[in-house]
Amino acid sequence: MSFEKFKDRNVGEDGYYMVDIEDYPETGWGKFKQVASRSLKGELFVGLWVVLREMFKFDIHTVQYPKEKLPIGPRYRAVHKMLRLFESGTERCIGCGLCEKICISDCIRMDTKYDENSRKEVTEYSINLGRCIFCGYCAEVCPELAIVHGGRYENASEQRAHFVEFEDMLTPIDALKAGQQEEYPGFGAIIPGSDKSVKKTPLAY
């Protein structure tokens, strides 16, 4: 066992380091040089020219977002969804904690407890979308195909840290009953025909 973390008593700056950026000019001459070089390079006009040119062509290919939206493939990875079991309607998540463990941005957190039915119950579950990099590891590791990526990519917010909770991601029960939950074909889903590669366990009954 490493004792390093216990020996470092400098708790305040733990894990921080300085980013290597050019120093701000301090002298008057330095500031002048920076302004001059930025204005005279003319990068600004390149962009303005492109806009002007396209405006006169009247040939606009842009999707009229937000009025229009592009269709999204099943393997696209946007804000997560939590699926339910089709038969019973119970949530698929068993609270195993694998998504929390695998998440490389460490943005999933969950609390679990032993419930009245002697089952593991997920009492709280949140994903910090401000940190999530939508890598899909959580969806891939999930043994229950409970957490998956949906197509909702609009997650702008006023704060860097903003969370989505279990209830928000879970298929509403009436949506499930109305047959609106589809089996997820995307990232981490079972490969079609994978049944064939499973070795069968003998059963005594």
Binding site: F3, G97, K101, K113, Y114
Partner: peptide, 14 residues
Amino acid sequence: YIYTSNAWEHKQVP
């Protein structure tokens, strides 16, 4: 301890 945590989540303080 049942169902409160997973072994790998712990920091082990000797």
